[in-house]
Each structure stands twice: as C-alpha cells, then as structure tokens.
Nucleic acid binder design. Structure first.
Lengths: 225, 225
DNA sequence: GACGATTTTAAAGAAAATTTAAATTTTTGT
DNA sequence: ACAAAAATTTAAATTTTCTTTAAAATCGTC
C-alpha cells in the first residue's frame, strides 16, 4: 500500500511517515503545493493524506486536480481548524474523509486503514498478473492454487516489481523502497542482487516463467502481457 | 434477514453497512438516539447492532425500550471501551452479545451470523471450522464433542485468528485487537508469542492438527480448507 | 486477605532470514 | 577479441525473529 503525505510542517510530516511505515505502509512525502502536484500527476497512490493549507496554493485545488486526472486514490483531508465550509467543500470535491488538527497518530492510522479497507471492497483486493495471484492483505502469492512461500523482503520486492510492471526499476529505487529513503547511495547493492535472484528463482521454480528480466546497467523489469 | 445499525460515526456505519450487505443482509441505519428510537418502535428487525454512546442518549435505554415493546430482535451491543459494568448491564437487559471497538468487519459478520443462527435454530450460535466448533456467545471451543478449555485471552485470540482465517495477521494487529488501540508499538510482543504458543499447543493436543502456522517475519496464519 | 488461575515478564536457545563477501559468469564498449 | 563493468551464484557470518520454559505479577473468587 502506497501513501502520499502532503503536509507543510516538516516535523509533523516526519512523525506521520514514521508511524505509518511502522504500520506497514509505504510513504512518499511532499511539503509544497508544487511538489504535491508533481507526485499526483506522475504516480499512483492508494491513499493521499492532504493538508489544506499549503505554501503555494490550497489543498482543495490538488483534490480537484486528482479527480480530473481520474486517479483512484482515497483522499483524507487534514486541516488546522474544523471549518464546516472547508469540510463540505472537501467532501463535495470527492474527498473520502476529513480530520482536524491536532490529531493522534493512532487516529490517523485508523482512518487510513478504514479508507484502504473501504477501497478494497470495490474491486478485489487481489492482484492478478498472468499466472500469479498476489494478495497484499493476506501476504500470499499463488500460482494456479499453489502458494509460493516468500520471505518478507521477497514479498515486498515482488509487490514493488508488480506495481512497476513493465517498467525498468533501478537498484537504487528498489533499495530506497525496501530499506527507506536514507539508503546510502555509496552502499553496494549486494543485498538487492541476492534478494532479487532468490525471488526470481522461487517464481521460476513454481511457474516456469522468468517474469523478472535484468536490464543490464539499468536495473530489472517485471514483464507481463 | 433485516438488520438495524445504530451507530453515530458515519464512516464506521457506512463500512458496516457495505460489508453486511455484501454478506447478504438488508440494512437500515440510524445515527442518533431519536432515529434509533423511531425505527425500533415502528419496524421489526432480526438483529439490531447497537452502539452504546449515542448523541441524544444512551444505547442501553434503547435496549430497554426494545424489550418493553416485546420485540424479538437479537441485539449485539457495541461499545468503545470494554467496560465491565456496561457489559453486564447490557447483557442483563437482554442483549445477546457484546463487542468492543475497534473490531474487524469480519468479526462483526461472524457475530451477526451467530445471532441469526441462534434466532432461527434456538440455541445454535456456533462457528464451524474444520474439526473445531466455536461458540462466540458461550465462549467455548470443542472438537468432536469434547471441549478444549481455553482461557479468556486464548479464546479471544482464537476468535481473531478464525475471523482472519487463511490470512496472515501481524503481531501488531493481534496486540491491538486483544489489548486495545493504545498498545505501545515500542513494546515487545512477548505476551503475544506466549499466548499464541499456548493456544497452539492446546489445539494440537486436542485435534492433532496445528491450524496456526507461523509466517516468519510477518505474523501467524490460521489455515483451514 | 489468601488461594488458585491467568496473564505478563524475562531470558536462553533454536530457527530462519538477511547481509556480507568473494568467486564466477555474463554483458558491453572499444 | 579484450578489458572493464555489471550481474549471478554460493556459502558463511550476522542479525532478527520465534520458541520454550519458568518465575513473577496480577486478577478473580471465596
């Protein structure tokens, strides 16, 4: 599950991120209107947590933009004051929930969970890629009824590959997504290599297909029809 | 089967409704004491899910009203905290089951199912999982006529596993479900380990089957065909 | 308040996953 | 075809997570 946090107070943003990562979510951050705009246009998220007052513009405009782009992310609006007009405008523009600052991180988590759950009602929670069935909630991967046992890191890696299906992902970005933003670039990518290869072998052993192609000098690409 | 949901949090109410409709129930909703009162007096339901804290009054009063009206609906009480006095008062007033927030929709469904079954078969409120028979109301578990003596925590844990059958549940979510929202993340999961192992051993001793598999690094999974 | 039962804490040992490291193979540019 | 860079493969070292056991603390009941 990938979240986007748009919030201009750096302290609060970091706290939110830390807590949500603990809960098993993957998070990206934006602190300005412009940065939020970029991320919304370029990428897809499951849930977007959106502060209304932002440097450079109003969060509600971002919400409009999102809806115009037909993006399916659930939106949780956060605002400093419990202003009824704002609230109504937000919900009318298609936000899914509304929250007033200050709030407890537990409440944030509960609301994000609720959004994720609600989203997964429509459309099955399982991801189907050719022969493979991935269930992010059950944390299982299966191929024709038989389960492929994966370790935690392997599962996260597979999910990242599938989210970026048919796109080349660099080892750097894999490292950042699996080990966090602060992964040292100077570090070697040995563990990325090893995990990727282990995952690859398990999938080949079960499906007979090597979905993960290496793109020499660039990274890897998970391919499917 | 017609249900009445009396609950003042709109988000939660909508989620409950969506889920129960998915499960084949017809639902009506009330968000205030007054609205609940009207519905209870005017119509008949098979099961009423009743939040205790309501704007405009206490849910237990509604329960009294219901009983005074000689209505036959099964009543499942929902309350924010696991307050024993509330619980006892509720059950003494004729409620059939009691549930503490937060809960999983699957558990809600399981309990409603149990209530419905008990209503229609008079005294059969059991969940069957392979060899195991779980009675959420009587708080008993049996395997081929013989009871498996479980402690309270073990029983709650088993119910949580069964509600999430064939899905991995993290130790974090177990902790939150058994000890409440404010379970400290920094805390260790020693007691989760111990209770899980004890439950496991008891079930294996009685059934010969280890339903609970450990999913290394992720949590546990209760498996059944 | 004392007793038995349950729950929690703690700590050592086992099991599994992750990381590191090094040797080997493959790919690419010249 | 060769050298350099990048990727694969293996296995060992390390770390994390889980299991087990037992003692301490808490809870409920009489």
């Amino acid at each position: 599950m990938k979240l986007l946090l748009i919030e201009d107070e750096p302290m609060l943003l970091d706290e939110m991120e830390a807590y949500l990562i603990e809960q098993g979510y993957r998070c990206e951050k934006a602190t300005t209107f412009a940065a939020g705009e970029d991320k919304i246009v370029l990428y897809d998220y499951d849930v977007i947590i959106l502060d209304i007052s932002l440097p450079g513009g109003n969060g509600l405009q971002l919400l409009q933009l999102l809806k115009k782009q037909q993006k399916e992310a659930g939106v949780l609006i956060v605002s400093a004051k419990d202003s009824l007009p704002d609230k109504l405008t937000g919900l009318n523009l298609g936000a899914d929930d509304y929250m007033t600052k200050p709030f407890h991180l537990e409440e944030l988590n509960a609301r994000v969970n609720a959004l994720v759950r609600r989203k997964s009602f429509k459309g099955n929670s399982q991801i189907q890629v050719d022969d493979l069935t991935i269930d992010p909630v059950a944390k299982t991967v299966s191929c024709n009824e038989t389960f492929i046992p994966l370790t935690k890191k392997e599962f996260e890696l597979l999910l990242y590959f599938i989210v970026n299906k048919n796109r080349v992902v660099s080892k750097q970005s894999i490292a950042e997504h699996l080990w966090g933003d602060h992964y040292d670039i100077v570090d070697n990518f040995d563990t990325v290599y090893v995990h990727t290869m282990n995952l690859r072998k398990k999938i080949v052993a079960h499906t007979g297909i090597d979905y993960i192609k290496t793109v020499y000098g660039m990274g890897y690409k998970f391919t499917s029809a």
